[in-house]
Write a protein that binds this DNA or RNA. Structure first.
Lengths: 244, 244
DNA sequence: CGACTTATTGAACAGTATCAAAAAGGGTGG
DNA sequence: CCACCCTTTTTGATACTGTTCAATAAGTCG
């Protein structure tokens, strides 16, 4: 038996509020309707029509916005424990597309079930709203990243953020993590060219800071890396002692 | 007597849902606790501690994030009818600062009152959540702006967005609008240098597209401007016929 | 193996920043 | 109403960061 509290979503929410067994089992129920999505096949979430969100159980996804010119901006990547399209059921839809980066396992969550769960376990509601709020803080931080950091800082900051997020669900350590992103995807997230990303990664590697290779990010000198790009992860709000 | 439905917030929410007189008066009650804030004096909204939001009645504000290096990234400007710090009461706090750009009149809204109003008038709740969702769509669009548009497109797109938002509350037409922003502020919002913004503005003016001068934005050729930067305002979600 | 995607490198170029300085506004006290 | 100070706008010259184009190498998958 897989312990409920070991699912990524439980680990993640548990970092914000301590969840009781009862609450964990409500969460587990939400997490039952498992589906598999194939890498690259759009998991289009065009709002209105679509009344369900997903909880990502394994694999990575990304949300992006396409331009008329054909270029795209990746808004964020989603890793296990993250919601996909949460906003489109809490609010009205955001108008971006979600696409699995790898093959993905996710459970469908209907608006009704979620709201239902909320009313039964308010603490769960708090935790989910925390997650939504954190998602937005990340988008804001990405804005700062694009607006006020150079390619090197931007790249390092982003990979550090992913590390911190993955650590929360047990998929990373300060040594590094498995990362299925291509340099093209990284480029689309960071507002850079894949060519330039490649040079920046080489530089970071040659400076002994981090290595992005063969589907893995390795922090060669975590502390120096954090210092060199001024990475302050308070916006991720995952440090504090468990609240409540 | 000032008709309730002529307040900026009523105009704005009314563009999304048709509000009855009863709903308008609930909105009006929320809008009673008026305060004045002086330009430049931080209206710090550091989350947790602060349990109230504001509805902006007149003047402009901006929300930004400061870097250790001293540079800042403005996330968005708020214009009449917008909420300030809405997220910090619906959710947990976002970690940015809000500062009035001009002297500002705003009414304080306590979390309790808002939630109270929601339960009395669900349609108002829908409208407020729509506003919050729209705010997020704007941040995402700003991300695209920084990541995938050059200085010229970026500047024009941003000024067009502000125009569309102000039009909704009767403060702009396709001819232009009063704009209290300095070129430095524009620079901090667009991830550019004030010097470069200045050159871009000159170029746009010389091309007969728009004029940014003396506290006013003038669209010299609105249609050509929209076409030239591929401005698609569907993300603002303010076109449709009134829903419901 | 062969076709395709991804990673890597070079050289030339474009866009934006930086530094510096002058001009133009705007507000304030006398 | 003027003189002065301070902020904002404007312009030039130069340096640099990141792009573009092009080509090769290295993986990956059927």
């Amino acid at each position: 038996m897989t312990a409920i509290h070991e699912s990524p979503i439980a680990l993640k929410l548990g970092a914000f509020v301590a969840l009781s067994d009862a609450e964990l089992s409500v969460l587990d129920e939400l997490h039952r309707r498992r589906r598999t999505f194939l890498a690259g096949r759009d998991l289009v979430l065009q709002g209105q029509s679509d009344q369900s969100a997903y909880i990502l159980a394994s694999g990575w996804a990304c949300s992006y916005k396409l331009q008329a010119s054909g270029s795209r901006q990746i808004v964020d990547f989603q890793v296990p424990g993250d919601f996909l399209g949460l906003r489109s059921i809490l609010f009205r839809t955001a108008d971006h597309t979600i696409e699995p980066v790898t093959n993905v396992e996710a459970s469908e969550v209907h608006a009704r079930d979620l709201l239902n769960a909320f009313s039964r376990t308010p603490k769960l509601a708090t935790a989910v709203l925390w997650a939504a709020s954190r998602d937005e803080a990340m988008v804001v931080e990405h804005l700062v990243n694009l607006g006020r950091r150079n390619a090197r800082e931007r790249t390092a900051h982003f990979l550090l953020e992913l590390g911190a997020r993955l650590k929360l669900v047990g998929l990373a350590t300060n040594a590094g993590y498995e990362c299925p992103l291509s340099q093209y995807m990284l480029a689309d997230a960071l507002g850079l060219t894949a060519v330039h990303i490649n040079r920046v990664l080489r530089e970071l590697r040659e400076d002994g800071l981090l290595t992005f290779q063969k589907g893995r990010v390795t922090f060669d000198d975590f502390d120096r890396l954090v210092a060199s790009v001024d990475f302050d992860k308070t916006y991720l709000d995952q440090d504090g002692p468990l609240l409540r």
